[in-house]
Design a protein around this nucleic acid. Sequence first.
DNA 1: TCTTGACTTGAAGTTCACTTCAACTTCTAT
DNA 2: ATAGAAGTTGAAGTGAACTTCAAGTCAAGA
Lengths: 159, 159
Amino acid sequence: MITIGELSARSGMATSALRYYEREGLIRAERTGGNQRRFPRSELRRVAFIRAAQNVGLTLEEIREALATLPDGRTPTRADWERLSRVWRHRLEERIAELERLRDKLTSCIGCGCLSLQRCKLYNPGDRAARAGAGARYLLGDTPQPMAAAEREDDASIS
Amino acid sequence: MITIGELSARSGMATSALRYYEREGLIRAERTGGNQRRFPRSELRRVAFIRAAQNVGLTLEEIREALATLPDGRTPTRADWERLSRVWRHRLEERIAELERLRDKLTSCIGCGCLSLQRCKLYNPGDRAARAGAGARYLLGDTPQPMAAAEREDDASIS
DNA sequence: TCTTGACTTGAAGTTCACTTCAACTTCTAT
DNA sequence: ATAGAAGTTGAAGTGAACTTCAAGTCAAGA
């Protein structure tokens, strides 16, 4: 059993983050008589798992769900890791493909300059989920509405 | 001159977002005697520009700066668009490359399962900026500290 | 003229993943 | 026994990009 300070030093996460993870049910601790946390060493691997998953772009909510697929909240084994990391790679590849599509659109738009609300490929509201620094809003499907057909009478084209 | 409702309908942005953009100095409106906003039609193109830039992953702050390079806060012309969109494509390409590096690391890690705090490539704190749904914190260089050398005595490896 | 829909404001709320703070308690080493 | 480091809590703050709300005002058609 290790203290929160030790877990923090060994994992590189701030103690405040570890307390937050515990509140959120991502890691687990027992308590001393004086109410201090004592973590099993196995939680070290859970923290490593959480952090690797974050690097791949998962939210804590998704990570919690992934961990919940492990029986009894056990620490991930090699088999668990293999199963889950395959899913993650798939997600990463989708995201890369998405950004590549966006890049290609941008490339084809550079000489154009129209910024047409109807015709510009870059303007597509469906693409907003691709934003790099996106607020969670856009990852959760709260996309803005496209322009109604009745309103296409004028547009923002330059030429 | 169009009302905020019209600008909203034609651009697909919520009126609340347009008011926010005005407060933030991204778009401009005149006022009627009764204090209602009236937007020049050219603001339609500014909104299109803002939205395209957001799709590429720029923050509103960066977009404001880009717009500020235009004399007199004028609406972007084709030449402006060409200049700025080249920069954006470059940024997109960097981001794609970053995600590809991450994918390659994950691929090489799938069979490994170690989740070693020292050796796992996925665990590298420097990569956290690559998070897809990153909070602004990570895009601003506030990265967690790597593990101190003195603390490497044990680790989270499975095997 | 009157109703109704569109508009106004400032303040507060939202999300995520935390951090910071204050006020206090516990643990460890001497 | 005691100093001081490390731990505890709940509440509030952070940042981006907005949205929602309340309480009103304005504008356009019948």
